[in-house]
């Protein structure tokens, strides 16, 4: 969300709209070159980063990339692997070799069963968009408690804020644990009061996350929410 909140006038474009025709600029994400012009391919805000023109899309599907932290839901289990829904077009595959446990052949469901929620990383994505997941790494695990929420892809960076500043503010305000997945999913856990405040805050992000003065209004909202506890 660079560009937002900097005070510079933001420009909203739609697919097909010519953004720039001057030479010396390059087409970044959300754009293509067409003749001399750079054309927007998505609805979003124009961003010029040292001559690279891109469009920050307002709406976007999750497309997994290697290294992403994702919150997945187990969709099927085989003898020696799991398939998880990661909010993208294709299920991610977790092979036994990248799971944190050693299990007997055929006993995979004892560790993770259909409907279980897990925190994983994307190990690799090939050209045909096959996704391999790993659960070997610090903190990667099955999420046994807490709650999973989905927000739009563009709100993910808004919830984190610069250097996780917004995220830390949320944690302090609610005394909840929160994990932000790169795949548009959040995991939260805490006591009943904290959770209900956190859910109100996430709803606020869903409705207001696009706005220029988002962070300022969020601070206000959190104070109000705590006062009304």
């Amino acid at each position: 969300m660079s560009g937002a909140g900097t005070g510079a006038e933001l420009r909203l474009v739609t697919p097909g709209e010519a953004i720039e025709t001057s030479s010396g600029v390059r087409a970044g994400t959300g754009t293509i070159s067409y003749g001399d012009a750079i054309i927007a391919t998505k609805v979003g805000w124009v961003n010029n980063n040292n001559g690279v023109i891109s469009v920050d899309p307002i709406n976007s599907a999750y497309m997994p990339r290697s290294g992403d932290l994702v919150i997945g839901v187990i969709e099927s289990v085989r003898n020696n692997l799991w398939f998880a829904d990661v909010n993208g077009p294709f299920n991610g595959l977790l092979p036994m070799s990248l799971a944190p446990w050693k299990v007997e052949f055929g006993a995979a469901r004892e560790q993770m069963d259909i409907g279980d929620v897990m925190l994983a990383r994307v190990q690799e994505v090939d050209e045909a968009h096959n996704i391999v997941l790993t659960m070997k790494g610090v903190g990667l695990r099955r999420l046994k408690e807490g709650f999973m929420l989905e927000v739009s892809m563009t709100h993910i960076s808004r919830i984190r804020g610069d250097n996780d500043s917004t995220l830390n503010m949320l944690k302090d305000a609610t005394d909840c644990r929160i994990i932000v997945g790169d795949n548009g999913r959040l995991w939260i856990d805490g006591d009943s009061e904290g959770l209900s405040v956190m859910k109100k805050i996430i709803d606020f992000v869903r409705n207001e996350g696009h706005k220029e003065n988002f962070k300022a209004t969020l601070v206000e909202f959190i104070e109000d929410a705590r006062r009304n506890l």
């Binding site: 697919p15 097909g16 054309i39 391919t41 709406n59």
Partner: peptide, 10 residues
């Protein structure tokens, strides 16, 4: 376009 599907034009 509303769904965020990339298109070269409407």
């Amino acid at each position: 376009a509303d769904a965020g599907i990339p298109m070269r034009d409407l």
